[in-house]
Computed example of a mutant assay.
Amino acid sequence: MQASVHSFDLDRRCGQVLLDTGRLVPFDAEVFDGSGLRHLRLGQRVSIDVEGDPEAADARLARLWIVGIGPGEVIR
Rank of each mutant, 00 (worst) to 15 (best):
M1A: 15
M1F: 11
M1H: 12
M1N: 09
Q2M: 11
A3P: 07
S4W: 10
V5D: 02
V5C: 03
S7T: 15
D9G: 03
D9P: 01
D9Y: 04
L10F: 10
R13C: 09
R13W: 03
R13E: 15
C14S: 15
G15P: 06
G15L: 06
Q16W: 11
L18A: 12
L18K: 13
L18M: 14
L19F: 00
T21C: 01
T21H: 00
G22M: 07
G22L: 01
G22T: 07
R23C: 04
R23A: 13
L24W: 08
L24F: 09
L24C: 08
P26Q: 07
F27G: 03
D28V: 09
F32Y: 05
F32L: 04
S35T: 03
S35Q: 04
G36D: 06
G36M: 05
L37N: 00
L37M: 07
R38D: 15
H39S: 14
H39Q: 14
L40K: 04
R41W: 11
R41M: 11
L42C: 05
L42T: 15
G43N: 02
G43M: 01
R45L: 10
S47R: 12
I48M: 00
I48D: 00
I48C: 01
D49S: 11
E51R: 14
G52R: 02
G52F: 03
E55L: 15
A59I: 00
L61D: 04
A62S: 14
R63E: 14
R63N: 09
I66N: 06
I66W: 05
I66K: 08
V67Y: 08
V67N: 14
G68E: 07
G68F: 01
G72W: 01
G72D: 03
G72R: 01
E73R: 15
E73C: 06
I75R: 12
R76K: 13
R76M: 10
